[in-house]
């Protein structure tokens, strides 16, 4: 939350320093931002209501956000519409989804989508880190919303034991005990956590991309999020498998069953062919 406010203060400072900006607008923007911040502190549950006032007034944007808008108008506008209001049947409104959502969707290459599908898949990113930040700033200033705290390592003081418990209650049902992901209904799926960075996991929890439920800071505190990320990064990903050089994808009994036939039975049938063969 503190980093959130810092960022906002920075934005305001930049806006104040801009010559010729109408003071009424500035005040109104300040009010809107304060409102957003207050709402987020209260739980962020009603952030959706807040942007209406801000967006309709078309307040001036920060430099970064203006650059972001330029990017938005060439890459995203087809589906998400002018001012990110959404296009019926193509793309949802982005008002209020926050920088976290942009960071997740664009940062993992899911957006821009190549075509309409059941679910956007992870792809190589189209935008650079700076461009993503600009887009995020634009969406953030349009409608507010959750923001991922600064820094690349968000699990520095995470506790893997607590994180593991939280992971099993909240995450494993879709992403599996091993973080490999799993199927959802009708072609949708929970992706593997293997390529995800700290910031992306954090952003996903905050924003609830696609069919993933939202795990806001009200439900899972930032400290608990750090614990979960620590569990994913340190235990699920960095910790080697003590049980063998091959972990069979950690898919559980299905690949173990394949292995016993492809390795065990095949090897032993060859052995028996040799033993009983004419020498």
């Amino acid at each position: 939350m503190t980093s959130d406010n810092d960022r906002r203060r920075g934005l305001l400072a930049r806006l104040r320093g801009r010559p010729g900006a109408p003071s009424r607008g500035r005040r109104r923007l300040g009010a809107a931002v304060r409102l957003v911040a207050a709402l987020m502190l209260a739980g962020g549950a009603y952030t959706v209501l807040a942007p209406g006032a801000a967006a309709q007034e078309n307040p001036p944007l920060s430099t970064a956000a203006a650059d972001g808008k330029a990017l938005f108008d060439v890459s995203c506008v087809t589906c998400h519409g002018r001012n990110a209001q959404g296009v019926e049947g193509r793309g949802p409104s982005l008002i209020g989804v926050g920088a976290a959502s942009v960071e997740f969707q664009v940062g993992t290459g899911r957006m821009p989508m190549a075509r309409q599908e059941a679910q956007a898949a992870r792809k190589p990113e189209v935008f650079t880190r700076d461009e993503i930040d600009q887009l995020a700033a634009y969406i953030q200033e349009l409608g507010g919303g959750p923001v991922v705290p600064a820094g690349d390592n968000l699990h520095a003081d995470g506790n893997v034991a607590i994180g593991g418990e939280l992971y099993r209650i909240n995450c494993s049902q879709c992403h599996a005990f091993s973080g490999g992901g799993g199927a959802l209904s009708s072609g949708k799926y929970a992706p593997s956590l293997a390529p995800a960075t700290d910031r992306q996991i954090y952003a996903a929890m905050l924003s609830g991309p696609q069919n993933m439920p939202v795990f806001g800071d009200n439900q899972i505190t930032p400290e608990q999020k750090a614990d979960i990320i620590a569990y994913i990064q340190q235990t699920l990903k960095d910790d080697g498998d003590p049980g063998g050089l091959f972990n069979l994808g950690r898919y559980g009994p299905s690949t173990e069953g394949v292995a016993i036939f492809l390795v065990g039975i095949v090897a032993l049938v060859f052995a028996s062919l040799w033993i009983a063969g004419k020498s």
Binding site: G182, A183, E256
Partner: peptide, 20 residues
């Protein structure tokens, strides 16, 4: 070949389940 890595599954709790 690692088989049945129970340490990843955690203890049985009636509300915990994994995909797959």
């Amino acid at each position: 070949f690692q088989i049945n890595p129970v340490w990843l599954f955690g203890p049985y709790e009636a509300w915990v389940v994994s995909a797959a």
